[in-house]
């Protein structure tokens, strides 16, 4: 299968969580509290896609699957897509633009503050995900900007920790995965350093090549 075709399959697969939600909605199977259900599922998938996106580079380096790099942008954009759904659920379905209550929530409720922070930090990443923007910013600047993905993931995990009442196992699981991903980054940097930077391509330093973004 060509990379292009695999990409198409992955793209379709990324839409499955949304498809399931729509299916359940059509079947009237969103529990007694549909808005809460939608909030939770879209929140889950925002965090999962964020972590998947952050797993691409470590996996590529570990397994030597250079083709993986070309999936990173798509996964990251899906993280943003689900985050947007998640935030819209909150804004439209849950609070229906009641800004008095929302302001109270964002400022006083630390879990909402953390979530909001995570969402806001994803916006510049989505906005600079095009080839033209990478060129415009230049590899290095683009790369440091896109470290925000880690910030968003950390905010997402903190958000989750702060919103659970007593069951910390799910946020803890995500926290461990995130810690491993962050740790691997440190580890690769250390080992890369010893190999020597001279041989490192743009891709090795985390900037996608034109080939990665093609198709």
């Amino acid at each position: 299968m060509s990379v292009r075709r695999v990409k198409l399959c992955v793209f379709a697969a990324c839409l499955i969580p949304l498809g399931l939600l729509v299916w359940r909605a059509v079947m009237g199977d969103l529990t007694a509290n549909p808005i809460e259900y939608i909030t939770h599922r879209t929140g889950d998938w925002t965090l999962r896609f964020l972590l998947l996106t952050l797993a691409v580079t470590p996996l590529r380096k570990l397994m030597g699957w250079s083709q993986l790099a070309s999936f990173r942008r798509m996964l990251g954009l899906f993280a943003f897509f689900y985050a947007t759904l998640h935030f819209s659920t909150y804004l439209v379905l849950d609070f229906f633009f009641d800004f008095e209550l929302i302001l109270d929530d964002v400022i006083e409720r630390r879990y909402v503050t953390a979530g909001f922070f995570g969402f806001v930090s994803l916006v510049p990443l989505a906005a600079t995900s095009t080839k033209a923007m990478i060129r415009r910013l230049g590899g290095e600047r683009w790369r440091s900007l896109h470290r925000l993905a880690y910030v968003a993931a950390v905010a997402g995990v903190v958000h989750y920790f702060w919103l659970v009442k007593i069951d910390v196992l799910p946020p803890l699981t995500y926290a461990v995965i995130l810690a491993v991903l962050l740790g691997s980054r440190v580890w690769f940097r250390y080992t890369n350093h010893r190999v020597g930077r001279a041989s490192a391509t743009g891709r090795d330093r985390g900037v996608p090549t034109d080939a990665d973004l093609a198709g």
């Binding site: 849950d94 009641d98 209550l101 879990y111």
Partner: peptide, 19 residues
């Protein structure tokens, strides 16, 4: 008196759209 982590000012009545 808010719960320390969320507001108690409003609620969702199950089965209705508006808070």
């Amino acid at each position: 008196v808010d719960h320390p982590r969320w507001s108690q000012a409003s609620e969702r009545r199950i089965g209705s759209f508006f808070r």
